[in-house]
């Protein structure tokens, strides 16, 4: 039986699962939701998501509206941000040999 070890960037991505992400899209929207998953094409799944619109001026909606579970394709993603975590610190943790790809994000923390 062989155990495949995920490359470091993939482990870092897994560490971000269940974190709150803020994704800015090219059509002037921001999605704030829980990171539920992604694939090799970089389509990002967000759960319990709120949508905010910052442009165009006529359609601005800073109060947000609940849109639930959404999949944001790579072609629309301008920026991805994670809430309240020092990612550099996590990178170090992963680099220190803590995380072996167990399929879920939590394994990196245990």
């Amino acid at each position: 039986m062989t155990t495949t070890v995920d490359p470091k960037p993939v482990q870092e991505l897994k560490n971000l699962l269940r974190e709150t992400l803020r994704i800015t899209t090219s059509d002037g929207r921001i999605f704030l939701g829980t990171f539920a998953g992604t694939d090799s094409q970089l389509n990002v799944l967000l759960a319990n998501t709120d949508e905010f619109r910052l442009s165009p001026p006529d359609s601005v909606n800073l109060d947000g509206r609940y849109v639930g579970l959404v999949m944001i394709p790579r072609r629309l993603v301008v920026k991805i941000e994670v809430h309240g975590r020092n990612v550099s610190e996590n990178r170090m943790r992963v680099a220190g040999g803590g995380g072996i790809g167990g399929g879920v994000g939590e394994s990196a923390y245990v």
């Binding site: 960037p9 870092e12 539920a36 309240g84």
Partner: peptide, 25 residues
């Protein structure tokens, strides 16, 4: 209180096996 992780996503996706996915438990 957000940190930009766009690069991390791009890098992670590029090193994932084709057709593989990462998902929460």
């Amino acid at each position: 209180n957000f940190e930009d992780v766009t690069e991390l996503f791009v890098e992670g996706a590029s090193q994932m096996m084709p057709g593989s996915v990462i998902m929460s438990e």
